[in-house]
Design a protein around this nucleic acid. Sequence first.
DNA 1: TTTTATCTATCTACTGATAGGTAGTTTTTC
DNA 2: GAAAAACTACCTATCAGTAGATAGATAAAA
Lengths: 189, 189
Amino acid sequence: MKKTYSAKANEIMDVAEAHMRKGGFDAVSFRDLASAVGVKSASVHYHFPQKPDLGQAIVSRYRSRIAETLGDAADSRASIAKLKLLFSVYSTALNSGDSVCLCCMLGAESRYLPTDVAAEVSLFFGDMTDWTRGALQADLPKARAAALAAHIISALQGAMVLSVALDDNSHLTNTQKMLLRFVKSELES
Amino acid sequence: MKKTYSAKANEIMDVAEAHMRKGGFDAVSFRDLASAVGVKSASVHYHFPQKPDLGQAIVSRYRSRIAETLGDAADSRASIAKLKLLFSVYSTALNSGDSVCLCCMLGAESRYLPTDVAAEVSLFFGDMTDWTRGALQADLPKARAAALAAHIISALQGAMVLSVALDDNSHLTNTQKMLLRFVKSELES
DNA sequence: TTTTATCTATCTACTGATAGGTAGTTTTTC
DNA sequence: GAAAAACTACCTATCAGTAGATAGATAAAA
């Protein structure tokens, strides 16, 4: 199901993704993208006929990339180790772009996005909570794991917002510490 | 320091705030605002000369409104009661607008906003973490209260994003339950 | 010969912003 | 108290800039 794109299309998506993370869906324009990758705006339309096509493609690619990094949530690694891997994905995202994660940005704008794009964003959050639930499931009752997983993803997303808004990435680190503390106490009980 | 605005200016701010919560700063246009309140776009410029003026005014008004609802964090109410009041502010915001809180939206866009607006958003998060820290300070060491407060605000913000993106407000409720559980265990230890 | 990837040129719609005008109200001055 | 000045809250008209999108041409590659 994973679509492939030409090198130029990927280059366009790279620029668009970085820009979208800072200012949202409307913040990227075909003209800006074009000049950033050295073509004309009509050529961007060749690769992505409409803007929602571009948006959906970016989010979809983003999902695959993270899924690949996280791997299988049901494998033999310890729950805490998996959690730390999840944390590192968020830390990397924040540090490597000086902006919130793509889907945090687009998620906030959900009510305003083309439906195809919003749907893909919704799938992303499904991916993340599912994976986290899977990572905790070995050590917790199913319902507890699900509730805890949703909470973890929420907290991480929010911590990115504060980190960016206050220009202080320690908010993400702080929330990761708190979550780890909480999860450990939950695993013990 | 609290600026006052005419009835019409407030009406403009109401519409702008609601719209900005859904699509961010760029999603509101002077023309749309004007037609929504029954004037011409030039008249909106009369009340708010430049768009950043409007943005800052909205966030500033938002801050005052919430500060008034929360009251004094250092008064005699119990910590847990104060926390529940904080939660209700977030629940109300989510339910009364079907969108994330204004500063969650603008906070994510921080890197893209006019500096005056971004600064005001940053003050909002300062308000919130300060108040929460104040609410917890009677029962916790200072540093612990500060870290916990920042975590609570982060988690609540993120839960709003998931609630909107997944069109399921139980994410906010769930995170509030988890936070309450965590805070109670911290107070006991 | 068809496909791929680009171009030029253009369209309509909308953006924030400004200049300058007009009633109606308030405040100041004589 | 009346006239003059100033202020408030709007208006019309317009500007330059940018948005997404399309039609049709071109050149190279498969």
